[in-house]
Amino acid sequence: MAFPRSDVAAPEAADAPPGTVAPVTVKIVVAGGFAVGKTTFIGSISDIEPLSTEAAMTEHSIGVDDAGGVSDRKTSTTVAMDFGRIALPGDLWLYLFGTPGQDRFHFMWDDLVKGAIGAVVLVDTDRLEACFDAVDYFESRQIPFVLAVNCFDGMAKHALEEVRDALAVRPETPVFYTDARSRAATKQALISLVTLAMQRMQA
């Protein structure tokens, strides 16, 4: 696939006063179940060692307490989130954000996906169900995503079509093997996602 080259990355650069020009930032979300290799994937290509940040959030939960009454309380929870950064030519900084695992952290995801190019969903075929949540999330919000089946030991345990069927994703959703430890494989996964996002925009 060939796209015309562009030298426009920092549109404000031309006449901005000195000292005020900043890189243009873009981001891609890396999702998938707990321990599927998100941080490894980010680290395989990031310019910086993946960093971790904490978001302390107050959750409002309504449930039934032990005495059978309805409880309505706020609980404070802390979520760790890993991320990396890649500097690209044209003064572009690409951030890769790993999503906190469980669906109860969707409040964080909303923050993460705002303005994101899209998402790479890492799939562990031994625990396919671990990525249902991410697939539902991105599909329902029409956020471009690709499914990258992580081959931990370099061996594919399931055919890609089996994975596609099991996850019931749309036919146009790319599904491919990856190796989260490999810079080359990670690069291909990112290329696949950005290409998909561009196709969506041009459709």
Binding site: D7, V8, V26, G90, L92, L190, M198
Partner: peptide, 9 residues
């Protein structure tokens, strides 16, 4: 911007 990202990656 996406074109530049794609070229860059």
């Amino acid at each position: 911007v996406l074109e530049s990202v794609l070229d860059g990656i």
